[in-house]
Amino acid sequence: MSSHSITESSSRAKWIAGSLVILYALITMLPLVWIVMTGFKSPADAISYPPKVVYEPTLEGYVNLFTTRTRQTEDYLLANPPENWADEIVRQYDMVIVGPSKFGERFMNSVIIGFGSTFLSIFLGTLAAYAFSRFRIPFADDLLFFILSTRMMPPIAVAIPIFLMYRSLGLSDTHLGMILLYTAVNISLAVWLLKGFIDEIPREYEEAALIDGYTRFQAFYKVVLPQAATGIASTAIFCLIFAWNEYAFAVLLTSATAQTAPPFIPTIIGVGGLDWPAVAAGATIFLLPVMIFTIVLRKHLLRGITFGAVRK
């Protein structure tokens, strides 16, 4: 006896669905793969036409990304033999490494500002969402609408007032300024998403904890937070992706001190001709933290994106 169940798809349907997913993945991955590949090419291979798929990999792009170099006279080069593999790579062009580039610093700025603002958005967002979800707050609906309304136009539309405000407050080109800015943009998203997740958690859990001898805050911390973990993780990923990739404000408000990686990476190209491998190397390294963060939290993300619908 065999019968077709509607929940159990036939092997043919599975095969088609699987192929479509793989095809889609290949198409979306292609630019990414190309960037990673370009990072390991020589500048000549990077711009050769037709494009090279098979090539001899080199770390030149990475060396150029992390160092500043200068051209030297033949005498100097002969008198100072290369000290390591990185030196050898730049000697091909009669250059020597004179020091580190700004990339490491810019990357650290991105880490501080991206994760700092994500943490702050989630911290404040969770507290606000809990309050909106559980307590009778005067004008709660109006407040929630106001919070959402901050996202009704693109943040960059208010760039000029923010630019002037930051200048007079001394927040321009500071880590704190960028953390506050990205938090301000992300917090509306965080409050709304997290309120949805917390609304899904039955109040009885906290009430049971209150009766079991815990304070309101302890009940929140021990009972609500662990159950909101899924929602918090997925909200954090959204916040981090925005803060990490943000370009326009970073160009406008940061320069010497707090510049993040996105405005910095394109400037690499101007250092010594069209150095595509260095740009690609920078983009590759820049992608890693968000990828790692997402992979670490992906178990939560998949369940979280469905907004609690499948949570049990």
């Binding site: 039955p202 009885e204 859990y205 009430e207 049971a208 904890a209 209150l210 009766i211 079991d212 001898g213 815990y214 304070t215 009972v223 662990p226 159950q227 049990k312």
Partner: peptide, 20 residues
């Protein structure tokens, strides 16, 4: 008094186990 201070134990009609 708060629920904790009242020293009562309660079994709820539903949902009272902490799922995590």
């Amino acid at each position: 008094l708060t629920p904790a201070q009242r020293d009562v134990a309660m079994v709820f009609q539903q949902y009272s186990l902490y799922p995590h």
